[in-house]
Design a binder for these strands. Structure first.
Lengths: 328, 328
DNA sequence: TTAATACTGTTATTCGTTTGACATATAGAC
DNA sequence: GTCTATATGTCAAACGAATAACAGTATTAA
């Protein structure tokens, strides 16, 4: 490993001078600066960031805690966040926490031990205290961790409402919400609330058919099959796109025609689903904006940890993508 | 930040003793060991891994360089790799290199500066030398980087062959390969070769219809539309599942019946596609096994950098998943 | 000529942990 | 009582870079 002293030797100057060039302080002549830069280039020198960190410099490492990048939505979100972090000079430590509380806890410990500059948290296993205790700058996606941790979300409530209204507009009168029933604080809860409120406004009866996000595929399918076979339903607000796809597929199996017999709207609108399932109507979360805002807020916290933010909750606008499955 | 000296004070012993407990060397009585562990727990102490690394200890950081986790296949692969790395005590630095040579180069520099213990490379922009020059343990997914860097792949050739044969068995006689045409070294090339050889064995004519992986959706769609409208085709081997889905969708638009008029087999078989597009036949890559082997080989290289491997190329078996789209 | 400014070097300390060298103390074995 | 294995402590150097303090030289301005 080539080190500072090697560069100094090559450039024919002292380590202090090289350090002055790298960290840009004190007096340095253009001539020396150039010489040092040349030496660094020739030796392909990279300051050892481990040593720099120990000296108190920032590590430029950010921990990303999300459920699982194999889910297209989180995959895309993580991808966008990573991209923005990179542009701002940060490196991403990926932590797929799944539903594993213990894993998430271990990750948190590990991120602290690695002196990360901050954390973007999108998984939802742990309570408030553990995140608080890190003493690190944190921003959260889609869930309240504590009073002084900013949350970025899509406007889930509005999404739930929009979807319900759209189904109604296309003639549906027996509209079900299919997905996680009200789990305290879970983001899909707001979608459900949006559904509920709109159902009430429309003077319809609300129907909630639980399909748990973490369940196995077979169990989810059973629940959906039960719904479609045994209930009078002509419209479905799904809590997420994958659930919507499942409903689409099972409807097909059962000979239910979409959208004539049944109209469906999903939620999330990741690019993959939008591009490769062009029949599915969905509420699109603005993933790039979410990523951008998360990184912006985090950087603000890092650069100025004590400053109070003017806002701790951010709802980004969702968009209704009208496709065939909802009757368009 | 709690540090070693704090633990020593709390436990009422010297730092050396604490270090002996942590690093497990020298003589330590059970009594002291317990006292130290209690102190660590009480103070919620985590050894500063930055300082440890500087001392020459391993960083337990692994760089993952892949095109993009928003692609379901890479999302799942990265997810599985991350999971295995975690189990082995490693942390994952995620590098989405896209098709950006410059970004990949920057990443490589960065990973070196951060003293990662090793790299798993699955992106395909850079030449041999830059990876060689890192002097780090590296394993590669699906592409040859150099003679002494082990490669793990699915058996792409076999996959291309299987798919072609299956289409033939179901009566297709005008079988096209749709996807990347032969790009030197690209993994899909082997799929194409498998297709070609089988076509020859079957005494059919080969047809290659280029649809470039990196192109925009619109251009891909144009290329596929052209194929379906202007060519006599009754079977398609797609270079990947997303291309296959596109073909499925466009066929639907054009009133082409699957599988009666046209049979299609995709490639990759990520869980998302398998679960949520149950009509699509596909060649399934064994993603968990790939992840497992990549991590195993990397760890071997890390623990024993000089040891020659008995094998530098690993082909993992693929599986044909027979669904409706290929005539089942 | 004097003084100020610009530039570079020397030296030493710091970050938190690891570890080797060495001293000392206690316990049990013979 | 002596020897040895076990247990703990003190001290110092190292990892690579940052930087403060200070010394010294060169250049420029007044």
């Amino acid at each position: 490993m080539v080190k500072l002293t090697d560069v100094a030797a090559k450039a024919g100057c002292s380590v202090t001078t090289v350090s002055r060039v790298i960290n840009n302080y004190g007096y340095i002549s253009q001539k020396t600066r150039k010489k040092v830069h040349e030496a660094m280039k020739e030796l392909n020198y990279q300051p050892n960031s481990v040593a720099r960190s120990l000296q108190g410099k920032k590590t430029k490492l950010i921990g990303l805690i999300f459920p699982d990048v194999s889910n297209p939505f989180f995959g895309e979100l993580v991808s966008k966040i990573e991209d923005r972090l990179f542009k701002h000079g940060y490196k991403t430590i990926l932590c797929n926490a799944g539903n594993d509380k213990e894993k998430e806890r271990t990750y948190l410990q590990m991120l602290m031990a690695n002196q990360v500059d901050g954390i973007i948290a999108g998984a939802h296993n742990l309570g408030i205290e553990e995140y608080q205790r890190t003493g690190l700058p944190i921003v959260s996606f889609d869930r309240k961790l504590s009073d002084n941790i900013p949350i970025v979300s899509a406007d889930n409530f509005k999404g739930g409402s929009l979807a319900t209204q759209e189904l109604y507009n296309h003639g549906a009168r027996h509209i079900y919400f299919v997905g996680n029933p009200t789990l305290d604080g879970h983001p899909t809860q707001k979608r459900l609330l949006g559904y509920k409120e709109t159902i009430e406004e429309l003077k319809l009866t609300e129907h909630i058919h639980p399909v748990i996000f973490n369940e196995t595929l077979a169990l989810k399918e059973m629940a959906i099959r039960d719904l479609l076979e045994n209930h009078k339903v002509d419209g479905i607000v799904a809590s997420d796109d994958l659930t919507a796809l499942l409903i689409l597929n099972i409807s097909h199996d059962l000979g239910i025609h979409i959208p004539e017999d049944l109209k469906i709207i999903g939620f999330d609108g990741s690019k993959v689903v939008r591009d490769f399932e062009p029949r599915l109507s969905t509420i699109v979360q603005p993933i790039p904006s979410i990523a951008q805002l998360l990184v912006k807020l985090l950087e603000k916290r890092i650069d100025n940890p004590t400053e109070e933010l003017d806002n701790y909750t951010y709802y980004l606008p969702v968009e209704l993508l009208k496709r065939e499955s909802s009757g368009n």
